[in-house]
Nucleic acid binder design. Sequence first.
DNA 1: CAGCAATCTGGACTTTGTCTAATATTCGGA
DNA 2: TCCGAATATTAGACAAAGTCCAGATTGCTG
Lengths: 136, 136
Amino acid sequence: MDYTRDNMAGLLRSHDINPTHQRIEIAHALFSRQEHLSADQVMAIVNTRHSETSKATVYNTLKLFLEKGLVREVIVDPSKVFFDPNTSPHHHLYEVDSGKLSDIDAEHVEISGLPPLPAGMVTEGIDLIVRVRRTS
Amino acid sequence: MDYTRDNMAGLLRSHDINPTHQRIEIAHALFSRQEHLSADQVMAIVNTRHSETSKATVYNTLKLFLEKGLVREVIVDPSKVFFDPNTSPHHHLYEVDSGKLSDIDAEHVEISGLPPLPAGMVTEGIDLIVRVRRTS
DNA sequence: CAGCAATCTGGACTTTGTCTAATATTCGGA
DNA sequence: TCCGAATATTAGACAAAGTCCAGATTGCTG
């Protein structure tokens, strides 16, 4: 699988998203890098040559991708949200100093002993974040 | 143990924090409630009668408490940070709709199979957040 | 009481994100 | 292809959380 803009259009359609020019660019930014990006970073990437996509559209689009399950939101930094093109179950490793965020495959990780949920509640997701720091 | 202002002064001293009037009030707000509070909420509580403590002081103080290990930071909501007076190991249950945050005792929870850390890294903490939603 | 360090303060500022009303684009049907 | 309706995009004003700074206060200590 490679992340051409054409393939992005297909990906968007398959998620019931109208593939406009801006949405394709934003999807391309996220998926071709396979990295966690903040809204700011997405905007910077998409507008490298000459400003093409507005701030409002970047935020709208990321929110749309989120609703449609195309990306996942990662909340680790109090000052900004990251968007993760990897939606398969996995956890995160966060380097506190540098702000670097990487994936931990969920395959071998097991979480046991969680108490039952309060009645009338469903789990929307379990976020496991390992915060690390460089030994100094 | 009860959370009189006098006891707060002792708590602060034992954590190497100079117990000023404002710091005692802020500690009292957090510890007498034993709840997760945002900076905003702390400010509202402390300034109920007549404004007594400035925004800058609330933020400075919470940051200081954090450094001295008196409280813990909980990052679950992209728009604000919560401060948790419970520093014993535990996890969190977050109700997405209402924003309600509660503790999950860590005693019976076990997390296994985490990969080894990258060289030169130490764990600063492991945050486990169960995001739940009301069935509708 | 004077001097000094630590603390507190208002308010300006920054950053992330939201909102709105006008404009532009896209899509499906004839 | 052309048209109208629905959908997207935009600039820029706005909001909220948090930071920063320089001056004022506090409270020691000699």
